[in-house]
């Protein structure tokens, strides 16, 4: 069977797992094209108006797969960490898709809900295997194999400080030298935001590439271990129950407290519910407690790159200026 996977949203986190799992069960994987203008246009037409940009684009990716596959895999992702949630839009995503896109093939929309326990991750894939008429043994072998690949993927991001598209994309146009030309004296920023925003080069207007070209080292939440995130969030007065928000705040606090970064760039899509809270906490705390420059980049469907570039360039100028005169800056406050 040909299973279609939209190259959007949790693709950036789980694709190695999904790919290995399905392929071990003798299924063929078809990915939608990388995000482009056509795809965005289709997504805008199909999606309800008040959804955020990544969800709209997801609609475009699903539409892109129609006619090419037998079934489309859109898991109902409710929670991916115990006692935490993902944005409610993910919970309703399969329904949204079925409701707004005509002529869909079958949709595989198995629940992924780890709120109560992590064991549900395993059960999620058992169920998936059962849908594909596989026996327990086959599923178990595929699951183990997929888990190993996924762990290697996550480890590689952390170890080599690279981004998912370096591994996932077959055509990512950047030489290995450029990635690893690490020079300790250059600027180091935290790049925070949902993975499906910052790693989609269309949505983020090539932000990763722009930073690399300007020789800026950046750390994302995917490049740090879970331990660091837990360490970073321990001083919050209350548990953060949005998984992606927690990752951002945990990473930020860990690095801010250790004074290891020159600035923070926070990328969020316009109208993002969880980020309206997370972004606010991040920005206020960064300014109040750490006096480190903070840049908020708000993304929506407009393609005006000029405003985006102006902010980014000015921000890097500020960081450079500060770094250059670092010794002269008193601890004002």
């Amino acid at each position: 069977m040909k299973i279609g996977i939209p190259r959007a949203l949790f693709y950036y986190q789980y694709y190695p797992f999904w790919k290995t799992f399905f392929e071990s069960l003798d299924q063929k994987i078809v990915l939608s094209s990388p995000t482009n203008k056509d795809l965005l246009k289709k997504g805008l037409e199909l999606c309800v108006d008040d959804a955020c940009l990544p969800v709209k684009i997801f609609h475009g990716h699903v539409a892109n797969l129609i006619g090419k596959v037998d079934t489309i895999f859109i898991p109902r992702i409710i929670s991916i960490e115990p006692k935490e949630y993902i944005c409610p839009k993910f919970l309703g995503l399969p329904d949204m898709i079925k409701n707004s896109i005509p002529d869909l093939p079958d949709i595989i929309d198995v629940d992924l809900n780890l709120y109560k326990s992590k064991i549900m991750f395993f059960r999620h894939f058992i169920k998936l295997g059962e849908i594909l008429n596989k026996n327990k043994k086959q599923i178990l072998i595929a699951f183990n194999k997929a888990q190993r690949v996924q762990q290697r993927f996550e480890y590689q991001l952390i170890k080599e400080k690279i981004v998912p598209q370096d591994i996932l994309s077959e055509t990512y146009k950047i030489s290995q030298n450029e990635i690893f030309s690490y020079n300790p004296s250059k600027l180091k920023v935290l790049l925070l935001g949902h993975h499906y925003n910052i790693y989609d080069d269309f949505i983020s207007m090539n932000l990763i590439m722009k930073l690399r070209k300007k020789n800026v080292t950046f750390i994302t939440s995917e490049m740090v271990t879970n331990k660091i995130i837990v360490e970073g969030t321990k001083n919050l007065s209350k548990d953060m129950f949005w998984t992606l928000g927690k990752k951002a705040i945990g990473t930020a606090y860990y690095y801010l407290e250790r004074k290891k970064v020159d600035g923070i760039i926070h990328v969020a899509s316009f109208g993002c519910g969880p980020d309206s809270l997370v972004g606010e906490i991040l920005e206020k705390r960064t300014r109040r407690d750490f006096h480190i420059p903070f840049l908020f980049l708000n993304l929506d469907e407009h393609s005006g790159e000029a405003g985006f570039n102006t902010r980014l360039e000015a921000f890097l100028d500020v960081l450079e200026g500060r770094k250059y005169f670092e010794d002269n800056i008193p601890t004002y406050g």
């Binding site: 903070f294 000015a314 100028d317 500060r322 005169f325």
Partner: peptide, 21 residues
């Protein structure tokens, strides 16, 4: 079309903000 604030201390730009959408 845009408004901005630039914060300077000791003759160095340390922070800035621009209007959003």
């Amino acid at each position: 079309q845009d408004s901005k604030i630039i914060i300077i201390r000791n003759q160095i730009v340390i922070d800035f903000a621009m209007n959003t959408v």
